[in-house]
C-alpha cells in the first residue's frame, strides 16, 4: 500500500514537470506551428542563469523567478530576431512548413555548444532548497519528500497563474485569439506578431521553471550536454502529443498520464524500461486516439 501511494505521488510530481515542458511546447506550437526543439536548450540556458543567481544571491527562491524572467527574455529574442526573419524568408518556398522546425534543432545545437564554450567542464549543480528525505508516516519512510511537495506546489501555482492569465485577462484573450484564428485576430486589431512573441516568452518562462525544478529533483548536476534536459524535452514532447498538442489542459493531462505510467513501470516492472515505455504509451495513445486525449475542438479551447 505504501509502495502504491509512493508511486502515485512520485508519478504526479515528475508528471507535473513534464507538464510544464509540454505547456512550453504547446504554447509555441499552437501559435506558430513550430515544434520548438530548442526548448530544452533554452531551459538549460535559463537554468544555468538560475544557478549563477544561486551562487551570488544564495537563494533558490529568488533565483527561480530570475531564471524564468531570463528564459522569457531569451525566448522573446529568439522569436523576434530569428523565427520572424525565418518565417518571412521561407514564407513561399517549398520548405516553408519544415524550415523553422529544422532551424530550432540548429538553435538547440548552437545554444548547447555556446554554453559548452562558456562554462566548459566546470562543476555546476543546484542543491535542493528543501530536504529530499522522504516524509515518515507511522514508521514508514516514503519516497515523497518535502522537495517533491514543493515541486508539485510550484507547478500547480504556475499553472493556476497561467490559467488566470489565459482565461481572465485581455492579454489572455489576445493570446487565444491569435492562436486559434490569426487572421480574424488581426482584423479585430490584435497585433498578432507581438502577441506571438509574448507567447514565446511565456513558453520560455515555463521551460525555465521546468529546468529549475527538474535539476534538484534529479542528481542536481548541470552540464551543457546534460542527459536530464534531453529527457525533459523528449518526455515533455510525448506529454504534449498525448494531450493533443493544441491544448494547455491537454499538456497537463498528458504530463500526468506519462508521469504516473512511468512511475508504475519503474517501481513495479523495471527501471531500465522507462524510456521504452514512454514511447510505447505514445504509440498506444496515437493508435487509439490519433488526435490525442484532448485533441478535439473542446480540447483546443482548454
Amino acid at each position: 500500500m505504501y509502495q502504491f501511494i509512493n508511486t502515485v505521488l512520485n508519478g504526479i510530481t515528475s508528471g507535473a514537470i513534464f507538464s510544464l515542458m509540454a505547456i512550453a511546447l504547446v504554447l509555441v506550437w499552437r501559435s506558430t506551428r513550430v515544434i520548438n526543439f530548442a526548448q530544452s536548450g533554452m531551459a538549460l540556458l535559463s537554468t544555468y542563469i538560475g544557478f549563477e543567481c544561486i551562487q551570488r544571491l544564495h537563494s533558490f527562491w529568488i533565483a527561480l523567478p530570475l531564471s524564468m524572467i531570463a528564459g522569457a527574455f531569451f525566448a522573446a529574442l529568439v522569436d523576434t530576431f530569428f523565427m520572424r526573419v525565418l518565417f518571412r524568408r521561407t514564407a513561399d518556398g517549398p520548405i516553408s512548413g519544415v524550415a523553422p522546425i529544422i532551424a530550432t534543432l540548429g538553435l538547440l545545437g548552437l545554444i548547447r555548444s555556446s554554453l559548452g564554450m562558456i562554462v566548459g567542464n566546470s562543476d555546476a549543480s543546484i542543491r535542493p532548497p528543501v530536504s529530499n528525505v522522504g516524509f515518515t508516516v507511522s514508521g514508514h519512510t516514503l519516497a515523497f519528500s518535502p522537495l517533491k511537495l514543493m515541486t508539485l506546489s510550484m507547478v500547480i501555482a504556475l499553472m493556476l497563474g497561467l490559467t488566470l492569465v489565459f482565461q481572465r485577462t485581455n492579454l489572455g484573450l489576445a493570446l487565444r485569439a491569435s492562436a486559434y484564428a490569426p487572421e480574424i485576430a488581426r482584423l479585430a486589431g490584435v497585433r498578432v506578431d507581438a502577441i506571438r512573441t509574448i507567447g514565446w516568452a511565456l513558453a520560455g518562462a515555463a521551460g525555465a521553471a521546468a529546468g529549475m525544478l527538474q535539476t534538484p529533483n534529479g542528481n542536481g548536476a548541470l552540464a551543457p550536454d546534460s542527459l536530464e534536459f534531453n529527457l525533459l524535452l523528449v518526455f515533455g514532447f510525448i506529454a504534449a502529443v498525448i494531450g493533443g498538442l493544441e491544448s494547455l489542459v491537454g499538456a497537463v493531462v498528458g504530463g500526468l498520464v506519462l508521469g504516473l505510467f512511468l512511475a508504475f513501470i519503474q517501481y513495479y516492472v523495471s527501471g531500465s524500461l522507462v524510456f521504452i515505455a514512454a514511447f510505447c504509451i505514445l504509440i498506444i495513445v496515437l493508435l487509439l486516439k490519433p488526435k490525442g486525449l484532448l485533441g478535439s475542438k473542446a480540447g483546443r479551447r482548454a
Binding site: N170, L173, A174, Y180, A181, A188, G189
Partner: peptide, 16 residues
Amino acid sequence: IPELTVEENLNLGALW
C-alpha cells in the same frame, strides 16, 4: 472564432 464565447468574440474587437 468558434473556440471563444460570444462575449469573448465581441470583446476581441475592443481589445486594441
